[in-house]
Design a binder for these strands. Structure first.
Length: 397
DNA sequence: TGCGAGTCAATACC
DNA sequence: GGTATTGACTCGCA
């Protein structure tokens, strides 16, 4: 019952988002813009010049990080219900944000701890492989929404983004190889570091890049070495204004290609579809720290972030952020951290757009839910479905 | 069957 | 209003 409730809630949330975002529904129904993607033009850029203009302004015109933060704050006005929904700000969002809680066919395992709503999050290797595939074959994406992560990767090949995510792609591919028995593992990261010097959009994307590299860790056992402490290890990344923003090594430990551990992790992870995603070893503590910092920086309530990005409760997020378990000790909980990690990788405007939608939808639900739930609960109690004390966990709708 | 992991929702706290 | 804590629950696994 609880599982059903959880799945329902997340699914309904996504439906709300799609209903609110015509562009998003367009993307779902028709991904014929793949060619545009592959040619380096964003589909939403083509479809919505207004949105395109705004995006480029956000990305390229922002004169400083403070300005960026300011713009984010304005976007976030909608979070919590205070803002007005403005479709022109809504982009076809990254899967991890626009539909983080949907239920893919494989995700409908119906289990509570296997994180049904989180299953759609594609494994890193899958992303890398798919991207690679698209890149070389220009294969059209299927209409399956669950594949939108791949689409999102392709979207990142926008002219403005191209330089950023190509190395990223390499990096990810390298991680994929690292897991493979044939892979060379850490070497790929090294190559990436060299490539990264070439990017002219470092300033624009530095924060995002930091988010990525900061998550690339050598593993739990290296945490203490890599991080001089929470503040020492994190703040330079958070500010994103250090001298060489595109240089991963300046960011300390990053996503690991700890092949041995990853392999064991992979075999131990029971989540279908995520097994191939065990390529990386996420530094959970650093992810938690970064998420905490980002939420504070943009004044994003934990509840919003937890619901929208992670499809979890505020309490869960709070616990995870304060007491992150080592990656090696995580099971299905890895998916949650992957979501955080993915979110950190997103361009800031996409993060905020997703959260803004979340704020809008969550408010709508808040208005509609309490009475319905109370009524339903009353009925269930009367019917003897559950004892009142356990009502909150009984999964009533 | 017991235990641990993961999560939720209520509640306390700031 | 946002965050931290806690009790209870489900599920997978040994």
């Amino acid at each position: 019952m609880k599982t059903a409730y959880n799945a329902y809630r997340c699914l309904a949330k996504d439906l709300d988002v799609y209903a609110m975002n015509p562009e998003m529904t367009m993307d779902i129904g028709s991904l014929s813009h793949e060619q545009d993607l592959m040619s380096g033009h964003s589909p939403h850029h083509n479809r919505n010049p207004g949105a395109s203009l705004r995006i480029h302004q956000d990305l390229t015109v922002a004169p400083s990080r403070s300005a960026m933060v300011s713009s984010m704050a304005s976007i976030l006005d909608g979070v919590g219900g205070g803002g007005e929904y403005r479709p022109e700000l809504s982009l076809p969002l990254h899967h991890a944000m626009s539909m983080p809680c949907d239920t893919s066919p494989s995700g409908m395992s119906g289990t509570y701890t296997t994180l049904t709503p989180l299953q759609p999050l594609p494994p890193i290797s899958t992303v890398s492989d798919k991207f690679h595939h698209h890149h070389h074959h220009h294969q059209r994406l299927s209409g399956n929404v669950s594949g939108s992560f791949t689409l999102m990767r392709d979207e990142r090949t926008l002219p403005a983004m191209n330089n950023l995510y190509n190395p990223y792609h390499k990096d990810m591919s390298g991680m994929g190889q690292s897991l493979s028995p044939l892979g060379s593992g850490l070497g790929s990261i090294h190559n990436t570091q060299q490539t990264l010097h070439n990017y002219s959009h470092e300033k624009m994307l530095s924060s995002n890049f930091d988010a990525h590299t900061a998550m690339l860790t050598r593993g739990d056992q290296h945490l203490s070495r890599g991080l001089g402490g929470p503040a020492a290890g994190m703040m330079p990344h958070l500010n994103g204004m250090h001298g060489h923003p595109g240089h991963p090594q300046s960011h300390g430990p990053v996503l690991a290609s700890n092949r041995d551990r990853s392999l064991s992790s992979s075999s131990s992870s029971g989540a279908p579809g995520s097994g191939s995603g065990q390529l990386e070893e996420i530094n959970t503590r650093e992810v938690a720290q970064r998420i905490t910092a980002e939420l504070k920086r943009y004044s994003i309530p934990q509840a919003i972030f937890a619901q929208r990005v992670l499809c979890r409760s505020q309490g869960t997020l709070s616990d995870l952020l304060r007491n992150p378990k080592p990656w090696s000790k995580l099971k299905s909980g890895r998916e949650t951290f992957r979501r955080m990690w993915k979110w950190l990788q997103e361009p800031e405007f996409q993060r905020m757009s997703a959260l803004r939608l979340a704020g809008k939808t969550s408010v709508q639900k808040k208005r509609a839910r309490p009475k319905q739930r109370q009524e339903q609960y009353t009925k269930e109690v009367a019917a003897g479905f559950h004892r009142p004390a356990a009502a909150n966990t009984s999964g009533h709708l």
